[in-house]
Nucleic acid binder design. Structure first.
Lengths: 188, 188
DNA sequence: GCACGCATGTAACCTGTTACATGATTCT
DNA sequence: AGAATCATGTAACAGGTTACATGCGTGC
């Protein structure tokens, strides 16, 4: 009867958010998921994007504002869509869906033999370092040119990613040390 | 013909990892997902756990080592299962599945009006702070008692979470500042 | 004219979820 | 005796994936 906010279904929100920045076609939206957005927040491929846009149009959250060559349809958020996005973004901050294969691997490292775990941790450290430096360059390049406001979302993501990789690096160093200590000074 | 590592299907790996620490029943494994593991890495509820254990037993990755009261079955990893886990943990470090509703929300904040975004960011900061202090207490409590090696996995998770929330906090402060700067000094 | 990239779609499947269902044991 | 908790399972559905399929436009 009353389904006053039935939270989930984050693909909808992701699309609303992207379209709120600027109107786009399904094709363009799909490509967004291959960048920072997909790397950090939410993954989606075109077979989920196109049907979802159709459903959202039926619900009046978005509308087709242009039809271009090659059947290209440009979608834009409607007032209703913008309202739904706002409600979602301002809803109480809870747990939400989390599913991260990398983090899972980090946790399960404990199940390996100490030397193997150490090797794997050194891989983590190297991986995190590599990503930190990529994102640092990214940032430097961006600072060189005046901000055009278009890739604001990408900037948020890049800064988040930078801090995330630094944290991962930090953690892996701690874990390596922790492991060594357990090995050299076994308890009881 | 040759499906030499067909990576994915992380529930399998999560269960292997948990069972590698110590044998457990489906019921106990399910409860693990309600803790740090589910909060950070991978979520799963009992209707996916039980059938998965049966499939894994069929593939010879785990085996029932005890049957207790109330149909309780205790599973343990086999040598083959341990081998599969090792292979997965040591596989080249790639992207993997990521799906995080919180992070999605943080990215899309940009779509709100500046004042609304600022309010939401202050919520993020408060949320991150709350979690940092919970995890700090957690750590202090753990340091008070001698490590018993049993909750090693939980300790890895807690330390990871701590650094993660600190990074989130950091990022939100940056984003808030970034937002202010854009508002007070609009470009072009 | 042909290859490549833009652009959309559909079908079959995978892997998780929620809701429904059942029964055994322990505690009070 | 009754409630709570342990312990497992099944069915229906949700929301994604990969693989398959098609056709238009542009550049060489």
């Amino acid at each position: 009867m009353c389904d006053m906010y039935s939270i989930d279904m984050s693909l909808t929100q992701a699309l609303l958010g992207l379209l709120a920045v600027e109107p786009a076609s399904g094709y363009e939206l799909t490509k967004e998921f291959e960048g920072d957005l997909g790397q950090w927040a939410w993954q989606a491929a075109h077979p989920s994007v196109y049907p979802e846009l159709v459903r959202m149009a039926e619900r009046g959250l978005v509308e087709v504002t242009q039809e271009g060559p090659r059947r290209r349809k440009t979608y834009a958020v409607t007032a209703k869509g913008r309202e739904e996005l706002r409600a979602w973004l301002q809803a109480p901050w809870g747990q939400g869906v989390v599913r991260n294969e990398q983090v899972l691997r980090m946790f399960l490292l404990e199940a390996l033999e100490p030397e193997e775990a150490a090797t794997a941790l050194r891989d983590v450290i190297e991986y995190a370092e590599r990503n930190v430096s990529v994102l640092r360059e990214h940032r430097a390049r961006r600072e060189a040119v005046p901000p055009d406001g278009r890739d604001a979302l990408g900037q948020l993501a890049a800064e988040y990613g930078l801090r995330q990789y630094q944290a991962m690096h930090d953690w892996a160093l701690w874990a390596l040390d922790h492991l060594n200590r357990r090995r050299t000074a076994p308890s009881t």
